[in-house]
């Protein structure tokens, strides 16, 4: 650890505002990116399964009904 205490760590030798601004935006972007990927993945899967549910035997799709 390069810092003596937490206060020094937060202050970053007077450059705390800049350092923490850069890191917080980077981390926010990382979280947004990864959760966005996961959300898209889930949405696509739900969408596909909804389509599939209409076609499984037993639950005949209205369009396929005689």
């Amino acid at each position: 650890m390069m810092f003596e205490d937490w206060q020094a760590f937060i202050a970053m030798g007077g450059h705390g505002l800049y350092v923490w601004m850069a890191y917080s935006v980077a981390v926010a972007l990382l979280i947004a990116n990864l959760t966005g990927l996961d959300r898209e993945r889930r949405r696509t899967r739900r969408h596909l399964q909804a389509q599939l549910g209409n076609r499984t035997p037993g639950g005949l799709d209205a369009s396929e009904a005689p």
Partner: peptide, 17 residues
Amino acid sequence: GLAFAPPDYQQGNSFRI
């Protein structure tokens, strides 16, 4: 980078960006 890397001799801690 934030806590364990040494600060830059010229730029100090802003270098961590």
